[in-house]
């Protein structure tokens, strides 16, 4: 049977039986996969700490069989991201990022850019404080990579380019809206500054998280916009949000 190998980030693992583990991992060229690691808990030699969540490793596996699980053969640890495990707020944000990848990028779809994005965020959090900027940048970039980017700087219905007042947002209708195209229900009111910040952040390199600074108003508005987009496209609410909301409350006005 052919053995495949690829750089991967461990998303989560589940103990199975006496000594085995079922591991969810995100590979660069084969997308999100689930694998069975026989004896992973008993023998530390074959896998070591490489199957811990947030670890980056080169994994070796054989293709999934009938049960949909790849058989994990070996792991070479590249980066344990030890810095991530030393702060509760960082763990919360890293867990959220991993769960978001799981939610937006389906199993088995190769997505090298999404892999690079997640790797860059974990590398960033390994050495830096968790910030709202990092969270929002990750969210908007992943939403875009998953193909759900909304219209920001012009009305998603009539296409008019916005001046500075009276801009609204409704993810279900494709993004930003001018006052003439409003639906007959309450929608988010947003500022051009926030939409501009989000649009500009998409022009920056995918893996860059340093050097961004959003005002508290931009942060709150951008969060409301991205939350709306995510709830539209995620099949289930994310479990990691309960801890993240406690760790990173929204900045006050």
């Amino acid at each position: 049977m052919r053995i495949l190998n690829n750089p991967a980030i461990i998303i989560r693992h589940l103990n199975y039986g006496e000594a085995d583990r079922i591991v969810t991992f995100f590979t660069r060229d084969h997308g999100l996969l689930k694998g069975f690691a026989r004896g992973a808990r008993k023998s530390r030699k074959r896998f070591g700490a490489a199957l811990e969540p947030f670890s980056e490793a080169r994994l070796y596996w054989t293709e999934p069989t009938g049960d949909g699980l790849a058989a994990l053969k070996e792991a070479e640890l590249t980066d344990l991201h030890l810095g991530l495990r030393q702060d509760l707020d960082i763990i919360s944000l890293a867990s959220y990022a991993c769960e978001l990848v799981e939610g937006l990028i389906g199993e088995g779809h190769p997505h090298p850019e999404a892999f690079d994005l997640l790797k860059a965020l974990l590398d960033h959090l390994n050495h830096n404080e968790p910030t709202w900027e990092a969270r929002l940048l990750f969210e908007i970039r992943l939403i875009t990579l998953a193909g759900y980017a909304p219209h920001f700087l012009h009305c998603s219905k009539c296409g008019i380019t916005f001046s500075d007042r009276g801009i609204f947002f409704e993810a279900e209708l494709g993004g930003s809206l001018c006052p003439q195209c409003l639906p007959g229900r309450k929608v988010l009111s947003v500022s051009l500054l926030t939409l501009g910040s989000l649009a500009r952040s998409l022009q920056t390199p995918l893996t860059l998280f340093e050097g961004f600074r959003f005002s508290s108003q931009t942060t709150r508005e951008a969060h409301a916009i991205l939350e709306q987009i995510l709830s539209l496209h995620l099949l289930h609410p994310l479990k990691s949000l309960s801890l993240l909301d406690r760790s990173m409350p929204l900045p006050s006005a």
Partner: peptide, 9 residues
């Protein structure tokens, strides 16, 4: 143990 990804708070 706390597990953000499994929703254990």
């Amino acid at each position: 143990a706390l597990s953000p990804l499994d929703g254990v708070g």
